Simulated assay, not measured.
Amino acid sequence: MKTTDLCDEFIEELQVSEDLFQSFGKKRSFHGPIYTVKVYEDNVLVRRALETIPAGAVLIVDGGGSKKCALLGDRLAEIAVQRGIQGIIINGCVRDTKELATLDIGILALGKNPVKSRKEGKGDSDIPVHFAAVNWIPRHIVYADKDGVVVASRQLLK
């Protein structure tokens, strides 16, 4: 179901994301339960999450909005595809955009930057985070397509 249809039918139950994201993956529409990491210019926990969250999930990465480096590149995105992750939404940047565009996964981010992130392992996982006017709460359901990103506290699709 399209995000526009979800808004028409369930607007009282939805949080609607601000239009901040660019699409970098091949998949333009995706949905699934939210899993979160909160990091800053360090992607160790992003990798750990992509290696452990269940197939069908969507990883929400609160990178503090930093555009100084990338939190996701082609190698981490390939892990996500191999594990059946539906999508990744990043409050930060990606790199290897040519390769990301060929991968069958939804990837939304603020932008791109060729610089790699630090590898210190600092941050938090599986906690509520807030950006783009949305409270991203673990296990709530996110729906994304070309028209936008919406979040519901329950599965809305049958």
Rank of each mutant, 00 (worst) to 15 (best):
L6I: 04
E9N: 14
E12S: 07
E13R: 14
L14D: 02
S17G: 07
E18D: 10
E18W: 04
F24G: 14
K27L: 06
R28I: 09
S29N: 10
S29I: 01
S29A: 08
H31N: 03
H31T: 15
I34Q: 04
V37D: 07
V39L: 15
V39R: 06
Y40L: 13
D42S: 01
D42N: 15
N43A: 10
V44I: 00
L45V: 00
V46K: 12
V46D: 12
V46A: 04
V46S: 11
R47G: 08
R47C: 06
R48C: 01
L50R: 04
E51P: 02
E51W: 07
T52K: 15
T52G: 04
T52N: 15
T52H: 03
I53C: 06
P54G: 10
A55L: 12
A55P: 12
G56H: 07
A57P: 01
A57T: 10
A57R: 11
A57M: 01
V58M: 01
V58D: 09
L59F: 05
I60N: 13
I60D: 05
V61G: 00
D62K: 02
G64T: 08
G65A: 03
S66H: 08
K68N: 09
L72I: 04
D74S: 07
L76K: 13
A77Y: 13
E78Q: 11
I79N: 05
A80G: 08
V81Y: 14
G84W: 12
I85G: 03
Q86T: 12
G87N: 06
I89T: 03
G92Y: 13
C93M: 05
R95W: 06
D96C: 15
T97A: 05
T97K: 08
E99Y: 08
L100W: 02
L103A: 03
D104T: 15
D104Q: 14
L108Y: 11
A109F: 00
N113Q: 15
N113E: 14
N113C: 01
N113A: 07
P114G: 07
V115R: 08
V115G: 05
K116A: 11
K116Q: 14
S117K: 12
E120Q: 09
K122P: 02
G123L: 11
D124S: 09
I127A: 08
P128T: 01
V129Q: 12
F131S: 15
F131Q: 02
A133M: 06
V134C: 13
V134I: 04
I137E: 06
Y143M: 09
A144T: 08
A144K: 11
D145I: 00
D147R: 05
G148A: 02
V150S: 07
A152D: 14
Q155A: 12
L157Q: 09
L157K: 03
